[in-house]
């Protein structure tokens, strides 16, 4: 589904990603872990098409298409979804109108009829249950005055509405209390299928107790320096990132 080969990216001339290789197949959950500043969020942003980042080398194909060639909106329409680390508050734009516009533009791209108001609302009601999001929240402006947990739940709710094939969760767990974390994870798990895939970007292992990954990759200095199964995450939880840093840094100096 997703194939990343030797991806290099920089921001304002500073290289952040220095050769990422990753293969993600349908039905899989990949966790990307790593210390702060290792490039985790950059990877998520580059995949979603954030303009500040410049891809300097490498390629990314998604369902056979050159992902890097697509505008952010076309990536979303192809089925890439980024759950933001910091969802943006947009005063004056109603959550419902925004979502209906988004859903219908995505549907149009996929050759589907637009949803009328009634069908849209019933779809919304159905998906709202997934993340236990309150209708009142959705009658407000997009994310405006939402608590941290409400914002993250809204991200997963949007994901449910847009039905992506590749979901990238960028530090969705940061700042969540345990109850909110359970709700969010539960939503993500219910959306999992044999046809879609999930990339979970996180600093902490805690989230992976709830969203169980098939593969865990450790990112450090812009490269994947270690890959393994969920046991690797537990090892990181126990020992921290220092041992990996030392391993890599000493190898580099030899």
């Amino acid at each position: 589904m997703l194939s990343i080969k030797n991806l290099h990216a920089s921001i304002e001339g500073t290289p952040i990603l220095r050769g990422i290789n990753l293969e993600v197949k349908a039905g899989e959950v990949h966790a990307i872990m790593g210390p702060n500043g290792s490039g985790k969020s950059t990877l998520a942003s580059v995949l979603a098409g954030r303009e500040e980042y410049e891809v300097t080398e490498g390629e990314v194909t998604f369902k056979g298409k050159d992902l890097l060639d697509l505008a952010p909106e076309d990536r979303a329409r192809e089925g890439v979804f980024l759950a933001f680390q910091y969802p943006v508050e947009i005063p004056g734009v109603s959550s419902t109108n925004f979502l209906r516009t988004a859903v219908n533009q995505v549907r149009e791209y996929r050759g589907l009829e637009p949803l009328d108001a009634v069908k849209f609302l019933s779809l919304m009601k159905e998906k709202m249950k997934l993340v236990e999001i309150d209708q009142k929240l959705l009658s407000r402006a997009l994310n405006e005055g939402f608590s941290g947990g409400e914002k993250k739940r809204n991200e997963i709710f949007q994901m449910a509405m847009l039905e992506p094939t590749l979901s990238i969760l960028d530090e969705t767990d940061s700042g969540l209390d345990i109850d909110a974390l359970k709700i969010v994870s539960n939503g993500v798990n219910q959306l999992k299928s044999a046809d879609n895939a999930t990339i979970v970007v996180t600093h902490y292992q805690r989230l992976l107790d709830y969203i169980v990954p098939d593969y865990v990759h450790v990112l450090y200095k812009g490269r994947i320096v270690k890959s393994g199964t969920k046991e690797l995450a537990l090892e990181l939880e126990e020992k921290g990132y220092d041992w990996i840093k030392e391993e890599i840094d000493s190898a580099a100096t030899v």
């Binding site: 303009e51 979303a76 947009i90 995505v106």
Partner: peptide, 14 residues
């Protein structure tokens, strides 16, 4: 720009 990217990332034309 951040808000613009957020909307685009949800599939809305720029």
């Amino acid at each position: 720009e951040e808000a613009l990217f957020y909307l685009q990332a949800r599939g809305i034309d720029k």
